[in-house]
Design a protein around this nucleic acid. Structure first.
Lengths: 185, 185
DNA sequence: AAAAAATGTCACATATTAATGACATAATAC
DNA sequence: GTATTATGTCATTAATATGTGACATTTTTT
């Protein structure tokens, strides 16, 4: 992996946990000198914008593949969960940004608006499945989406803490998520 | 509520989302002048210590009441979830601190060690219920605890976003959590 | 209404972080 | 091995954040 991507990855990871973390903290996490970081990214804002762009691209690509990879809605949802887990911290940070005030700069970018549109389309699976009584109808759409995000969070945290083996991770995540929304498989 | 508690509440809320947030940002959230904040809390560290202490106390009291309020383990677990939801952001921040490196100052305090001990005792319910095949045995203890925390997170986020009515909140949280760990009630 | 207490405004010293230039050192290519 | 390129070290300036004193304004008490 190129150094700019290494820095980007660690920037996303650090900023996800502590958005006002110093550039030095990010540099340390990426194991490069602060001066080197500034050679790849002009300033703090540039780095943050690059984080946003990268998160959006990564997530979009992964979700698109998941959505298009199967015609059966339950399988699509399952693959979307796996895709989000693969995106890991990038997806979590993105969904955190999403829930913040719209006064932010990123909320007005074309890419972000496209992201929101795609997301709404993909998560349209949920009400579809509720109409067919596959997913519990007493749960609201926003609630299920929060469950989805936080299932991913559980997975990322478990992986980081070493609580669960890589192989079991996605299976457990889907098992718990699907059961929680009333899918009996 | 006394002004010191108002400031404390908002400090916990702001720091939970952005740990390196400035004192000014906390003061703004609490709708007091920065100068006033410094009259209640000598400096940033004092404020942060007060946050930790308050989170621990709030959580401890709520969980103790939940645990002692019922003799039946499933009911105890349910009440513990409700207690954690009532603690809201305080509980989330606390569990975030918990998962950080032990190099932190707070990890060595007496209160925190007592907290860990109590927590382990209370969450001992989980393996008990697994032995009785009430909770799915293929799920590990740490995984279930992460699910617990993130169910609380889902509840807090839903409440903040106004997605779910106050009245339904705890019922939905328990419904989803209990189903996800294989409790069929 | 007068006194007392709490809060806000503003200027200011200090500390921390952001960002850059000049140069030394390490890594890589040829 | 030498030239080239990438990275690290260190000093320095600019910008923000921390924390305090002096005093004005507001709120509460009596």
């Amino acid at each position: 992996m190129n150094k700019d991507k290494v820095i980007l990855y660690h920037a996303i990871s650090v900023l996800n946990e502590d958005f006002s973390a110093s550039v030095e903290k990010i540099a340390n996490a990426a194991q490069v000198n602060k001066r080197t970081l500034y050679r790849y990214y002009k300033d703090r804002d540039t780095l943050i914008s690059a984080c946003y762009a990268n998160m959006l691209d990564t997530w979009y690509e992964a979700m698109l593949a998941a959505y298009n990879g199967d015609a059966h809605p339950i399988k699509q949802l399952e693959q979307m969960l796996y895709a989000a887990i693969d995106c890991g911290v990038k997806y979590l940070f993105l969904s955190a940004v999403e829930s913040k005030d719209g006064n932010n700069d990123i909320h007005r970018t074309e890419k972000f608006i496209a992201y929101e549109k795609a997301r709404d389309k993909w998560f349209g699976i949920i009400p579809e499945l509720q109409e067919k009584n596959v997913i519990d109808r007493q749960l609201s759409g926003p609630w299920i989406r929060l469950l989805f995000v936080n299932t991913v969070r559980t997975s990322v945290q478990a992986l980081k803490a070493g609580d669960v083996a890589q192989n079991d991770l996605k299976r457990l995540a889907w098992l718990c998520f699907s059961r929680s929304i009333g899918i009996t498989g």
